[in-house]
Design a protein around this nucleic acid. Structure first.
Lengths: 166, 166
DNA sequence: CTTGGAATGTCAACAAGGCTGACGTAAATT
DNA sequence: AATTTACGTCAGCCTTGTTGACATTCCAAG
């Protein structure tokens, strides 16, 4: 243990073995990360794709279909299938754009917000427990490494849309 | 910055907004995490499922089908489909267990090791770059939070199979 | 030895959620 | 007026997950 914390310890943290551990940590942790929402979604006719859509619509109310496509990194056909069910079920509203009437601005309805709440509450609960266990300094490192791991375009999405900031 | 490192700074890191940022960091970072192997796999007739199987067979040569099922969290039918193609293509060898002849011990062939290498080289390169950018202290925090985020069972898989240790 | 159960393989059917290609419509732009 | 953009939709395909059913092999207990 007893890390120097300064970076001058011979880069032991960059050995292949250390990197492999990091890779597996990502794999196993991501499973935990999605487990709770998945449990809620199963049986509701919805899946992870719906969760993602609802999450980002909630975060940025009024965002367009194109923007959401870019954020999620899926095709319009794939997104449309998900959006279609959410709109038909009254969880999402697609308003015609005021400036550019070709665009559709997406909003959660009250019903949609209820689902979003239950999903994000579950996910936040796990994240909160992990944060609390690990402590603020670890959380700082966690965010730093994850941000460095993103593709530049995704990093822009991640950084560019934060309101409150780190 | 100037974190106390003790948790007595008012728990600002546990606000809903901070947790939301952590959630999105996981989402965007995981995309980057899988992007490079995915690029290699596309066109080879293989997918992410093959990557995962090859990774864990490489890590623990001789592991059984049951063990791999437990690690990957998929059904035998799903795993078998992936394993079938890997065996047929000569990337994986399934030897009958010596002690219990019902079991199949899985090994990478030389050909399988070549693929594993190219996939893990790509993934490690990104991980290495992120680690280098973030620094050893951040890496420590990264691993700590991820470990806390896992389901207990997955945490056992993660910790129990490491040879070199942290 | 026989039988029960465990480990594995396999066939079939199905679903979610990706993808491409093609086509249509409305609205903005040139 | 022609073109481009944003979006929706139909059709079909792929990967990877799921259940259910059934066969085989083999260990272990009676």
């Amino acid at each position: 243990m007893a890390e120097t914390g300064g970076g001058g310890e011979g880069l032991l943290f960059l050995t292949d073995e250390q990197l492999r551990k990091g890779i597996e940590a990502m794999f196993f942790a991501y499973r935990g990360f999605t487990a709770d929402p998945d449990r809620i979604l199963e049986g509701l006719d919805y899946g992870r794709a719906h969760h993602r859509a609802v999450h980002f619509i909630n975060r940025s109310p009024g965002l367009t279909v194109s923007s959401l496509m870019a954020i999620l990194g899926v095709t319009k056909q794939s997104l449309n299938r998900v959006l279609r069910t959410l709109i038909d079920d009254g969880l999402v509203e697609a308003r015609i754009g005021r400036e550019d009437r070709r665009e559709r601005n997406l909003y959660l309805t009250d019903k949609g917000m209820v689902l979003e709440r239950s999903l994000s509450d579950a996910q936040r609960a796990r994240m909160r427990a992990a944060y609390r266990t690990a402590g603020p300094q670890a959380v700082q490192g966690f965010r730093t490494v994850l941000e460095a791991m993103m593709d530049p375009e995704m990093r822009r999405q991640y950084l560019g849309l934060k309101e409150a900031g780190s």
